[in-house]
Structures are given as C-alpha cells and as structure tokens.
Design a protein around this nucleic acid. Structure first.
Lengths: 254, 254
DNA sequence: TTCCATAAGTATACGGCGTGTCATGTTTCT
DNA sequence: AGAAACATGACACGCCGTATACTTATGGAA
C-alpha cells in the first residue's frame, strides 16, 4: 500500500508515509465492509483515533483520497492480472488468456467492493479528475488483453468475415496508438475481439458480484470456466492441422 | 406508472393513486438525474411542494418506496424485452434473440440509472425484502432468455462436448422448475448457455453504461452488434444443411 | 546547542444533508 | 356528525465535509 518507508527518509517522513498508508488501508477496509459510498473522512478519523481535521494534512480533500484509492486498487488489479498471465509460458497463448480471465474473477471475488469502485457506479458526489485513474487503468488492462487476444488467435486469416467484423475507423486514434505500442501487428478484428472478450468476462463477473447468479446457478465458477473455454475455442480459428486442440487447454489451478 | 385511476374509485382513491403515481415518477426522475443513491423522501417532497412528512402517508418508509421503484422499473424492462421479442416472427429464433439483445441495450442506454438500480450496486442503506423484486425480475428475464436460447440452438445434438458443458446438478431446483415451466425440453447445456449469453450481453452493456468503452471504441453499438452476431452464430451448431445461414440474420432497425 | 519555522495534531463550530416521530389541524367519505 | 385519511410544522438524532484558531512536536540552520 503506497510507498514503503525508506531508511533514507527522516523520521518525520517515515511517519507521514506510514500515516497515509494507514489512512488508505482503513479507507479500503471501510469500503470493503460498507461499500464505496461509505468512505468518509470522519469515519477514517474515528477509526484511527484522530480528529477529522487531521486527515487534511495528508489529503487536501475527500476526492483526493478517493482518487488515490482508485489508483491504488486498479493498479493492484492490473498487477494481479499480469502476474497470472506471466505464470503461464508464452508458448501457450490460450492458456495465458485462460489464466488472465481466471485471475480477473478471483480478484473480483476477493475484492468485490474494489471491483465496483473501479468498474461500477461512481461514488456519489465524487468528481474524478480529468484523465482520471480509471481511464489509466482501463488502458493498461485493455492493452494487456489485446496482446493476449492477438496471441490467442495469432494466425487470424484475413477472411472476408473477419474484415467485416470491424474497421480501423471504429476505434479512437489515441487508443489505437496505445495498443499498437504493445501489439505491433494489430488488426481491427483483433481489437474488436479483445473488447468483446473483455465484455464476456466482465459480464459474468459483475452478474456474480451483484448476486444475480446466486438464484440461477450453483457454482458460478463452473459457468465462468465454460464461458472461458468457449471463448478461447472461438478465438482460435480451429483445428485445420496442428493448431489448438482441446488437450492443449489445461486447467489452471483454482 | 402504477395503476391507472379508475372511474369506479371514489374521489379520494383517485387522488391517492395519482399522488403515489407522481411520487414514483419524481423518484424516477431524481434517480435519473442524480443517481439511485440520491433518492430521498425529502427531495421528492421538495419537488412536489409537500411536507416531507406527507410522503409517509403513501410509503411507510424509504425502503418501501425504493422497493416499489425497483419493481416498477424491472417489470418495465421485462416488458420492453418481451415486446421486442414478439415483434419478430417465431419462425426466426435467431432474429428473436437478436431483437431481444438489441432491446436490452437500447433500454439500458435510455434508462441507465434504472438499469443500475436493477442490476448494479444496491442503494446504500437499502435492505431489500426477502424474495425481493430483484429476484423476481431475474427469474422472469432469465426464463424468457432460456426460451429464446433453446429455440435458437434448437437442434442441439447430444454431443459429448455439449454434455460436458453442464450438468443438472449445476442449477438450483427452484430455478429449474421455473424455467421448465416455459421450456419443457430444457437441457443442462441450454441452461448454461442461456446464462452465458446473458453474461455476454450484460457485460458490454455495463461497460458502456459506466463509460469504460468511451475511450476504447467509437461506437459501442457496432461492437455490441458484432458480439450478438457472433453469439447467435456460435449457438446454432452451424450449417450442415438447410440450417441457419448468414442471410437469415437480418438487421433489426436500430 | 539553541532557536524558530513548519508540520501534525487538538478542540470547536458551521451549514448542510437525511430519516423518522411527535401532537395537531384540515379535508373528505360514510 | 363523526371517523378516517391526509397534511402540517417542529423536533430529535445522526451523518457528512470543511474551516478557524490554538497547541505541540519536530528538523534543520545559526
């Protein structure tokens, strides 16, 4: 959480870092138990045994605190995703994608409130700064996903139907530039599929988080897994030779 | 909104119905402009030129008001979906599914706050009653979707992979009973696919509603359309004869 | 080592929001 | 005429973010 205290800092600075760390941690805890809307300076101060006014030495305003929180949480999510992806050898792009998706759900279930802080309704009364942390994270996550999807359907032929799927003009220039930095041989079809893959994973996760799957299926993990397998299968244009076959799709540990 | 005033009612009753109608309408309007968390008895009273206390004659508590609101909105959504579905001849199940999905997005974009009231984070401090209106709506919507999906992949062969997709034990008994009332020849694979289809649509819609698609694609409708087409194509086990071919998938008017 | 600017902390207060509950009129139906 | 439904204004109680003014501890320069 935040920067780690460093030996080179003065005592004062160490205390300061430690205090901001604690503030963010308590805010996180409050959000986890009462929802993002329950984050309040007073509540944090109460829990820290401080005066509400004292918080202002660390965050000039409530919105600043929330912005810091969002930034921290979303980068924590991005870290988790990249870690999961890198744990699978690059030679198995489908499995990397599977691991990525699995990590997304696992993280979301472990931090439901964090997930909804980043992807859900904005906190009432909170005005995010321009070029807010949310968009930052979205770009980072989307970029990574594009690379994965591009790899997973690597020999995407230039079939007419793939060309009909999407066009360069469908995407904003800034986004394309960012993604191209990671995926040089990007095609519109891949960009479109990456976003749609994101949507598929996001949909089941949010449904589950908000409890809409509770009444309709016993184990959402099973559903999610089936969806991911279907998804990977639909990306790889399928076995016309030594391509991806079912046996290559191993099951990552839950 | 609510029951319509009836000639048979006394003047008093007509006034009462009209007042509750107006209360709900204003609540709806408030929610649409300030978000679900901003719904407040006092705010409504202010806008109606009434004393806050007067509202309590119609809704005993704030939670009751919200429950009524959720019930009204979710049934409005279900109505819209069924209307769109029925506008397409039953002979074209894929197109019915397409229309259903299209209607979902259109409704959501027209009532984003309503959508998040039903599917998003619960309103802070709101305790939904047991067997709440949310689950009611979920069952109704899920049931309809199951029927559509079953029709769209009607000659689903009992292939081993389809059997591996899901099992009866994956679904709670109550849910199965409800769905079977509409879809007598339900199979586990269809039930699983229906939920996953729901997830695919839901994912893109929520991403768009929360603004996460703004920075990454120019026209979410195009993306959504591509996803729906892909989805329909993946349901129908594909052309091994006179089945579904691309030409059958007509474009419903936006 | 001394001393002072600065930062972190305290207490208190303002103005606003919200839900829900009193006792008390006022209108309408029977 | 009387009972029920509806409306009123004043309260109680709780939250919130933020501001002012004052005290204390700290860190570095003289």
């Amino acid at each position: 959480m935040g920067e780690a205290p460093d030996k080179a800092m003065s005592r004062r600075e160490r205390l300061r870092v430690e205090a901001t760390r604690q503030i963010l941690e308590i805010a996180l805890h409050q959000m986890a138990s009462e929802g993002p809307g329950a984050i309040s300076l007073r509540g944090i101060a109460r829990e820290m045994g401080m005066t509400p006014r004292a918080i202002y030495s660390y965050f000039a305003t409530r919105d600043d605190l929330i912005t810091a929180l969002i930034r921290h949480i979303s980068s924590s999510l991005a870290d988790a995703l990249e870690r999961a992806r890198d744990a699978v050898p690059a030679a198995h792009p489908e499995n990397r994608l599977l691991a990525w998706g699995q990590a997304l759900r696992v993280w979301a279930m472990a931090n439901p409130q964090g997930f909804q802080l980043v992807y859900g309704d904005p906190i009432p009364g909170y005005q995010q700064p321009e070029q807010g942390p949310v968009e930052e994270a979205a770009l980072r996550i989307c970029g990574g996903l594009n690379r994965l999807v591009a790899a997973a359907c690597s020999p995407l032929p230039y079939s007419p139907e793939a060309a009909a799927e999407a066009d360069w003009s469908d995407f904003p220039a800034g986004y394309l530039a960012t993604v191209r930095a990671e995926v040089p041989d990007l095609s519109p079809a891949v960009a479109s599929r990456a976003l749609r893959v994101w949507g598929r994973l996001h949909g089941l996760v949010t449904l589950e988080i908000h409890g809409h799957l509770r009444a309709v299926c016993n184990d959402p993990a099973v559903l999610y897994r089936a969806e991911m397998l279907d998804l990977v299968r639909s990306l790889a244009p399928a076995p016309s030779g030594a391509g991806t076959d079912e046996r290559n799709v191993i099951t990552p540990a839950t």
